[in-house]
């Protein structure tokens, strides 16, 4: 992905030092990007509506207004609103409390943009990887958000059409009566469910095929 495209990022965190650190790391990787920041929830909706950013990096534990205490519920409410209204926005969640996100799973599954979760204590290149994935429209959720392997029925249909009948995305889209874009959306969600993510030098479709077979989905 070209890093020359001029991106607009929004960084939300209640700690100024974290915001600053995140900005420095992002600037290093995306020198042309315009980076906006917010430290309280009340500013975020209007900021996003006005600037239409490509990506939002967000901490869940934030205060609703200045001089209020930080709460995860505040971040969850805000995120729920954003996922509902800005369906194409790419989102990176920086948080240690991923379990709180389980309730948002249906929204995350339905979200059209990328959605990745990055551990706050992880090194900066991990964060940059999650930013890159989110910008590619991929999904990454940690294993502890899941119990077993949940596959939506339509993902299953897609997997069968792709790997049993060997169809292209275009033909799958025709058969399933959805857009190609939707099929790509299914792929990213299925890959997250199977724990398959882009790796330098590996073909992700082949990887997905292997994992699906291992899980017994193609029996």
């Amino acid at each position: 992905m070209s890093k020359n495209t001029s991106y607009t990022f929004v960084v939300i965190d209640d700690h100024d030092s974290v915001v600053e650190g995140t900005c420095i790391v992002l600037k290093g990787e995306y020198p042309d990007a315009k980076i906006l920041t917010a430290s309280t929830a009340d500013k975020v909706e209007s900021l996003i509506a006005e600037t239409q950013p490509n990506l939002m990096v967000m901490d869940l534990s934030i205060p609703s207004e200045p001089d209020r205490e930080s709460h995860i519920s505040t971040g969850l409410d805000l995120l729920t609103g954003i996922l509902t209204t800005h369906t194409a926005l790419n989102v990176v969640i920086q948080s240690a409390h991923v379990k709180a996100l389980i309730r948002l799973k249906p929204l995350i599954d339905a979200h059209k943009g990328g959605f990745t979760i990055s551990d706050k204590s992880a090194p900066s290149h991990e964060m940059l990887k999650k930013v890159d994935w989110a910008l590619q429209g991929l999904v990454f959720t940690p294993q502890e958000m899941r119990v077993g392997l949940e596959i939506k029925r339509e993902w299953m249909t897609m997997l069968e059409l792709a790997f049993k009948e060997g169809l292209t995305d275009k033909l799958i889209a025709q058969k399933m009566n959805v857009s190609e874009r939707t099929v790509r959306h299914y792929w990213t969600r299925t890959q997250d469910a199977l724990g398959v993510y882009p790796e330098e030098g590996f073909n992700i479709r082949v990887h997905t095929h292997n994992k699906a077979r291992q899980a017994g989905l193609l029996d």
Partner: peptide
């Protein structure tokens, strides 16, 4: 969906080994 999520989480050790094909 929430009932499903909560219930499989309750029996996590069992359902971790189960593929769940869902449609809500």
């Amino acid at each position: 969906y929430e009932v499903y999520q909560t219930t499989v989480a309750r029996y996590k050790t069992f359902f971790d080994a189960v593929v769940q094909i869902t449609a809500f």
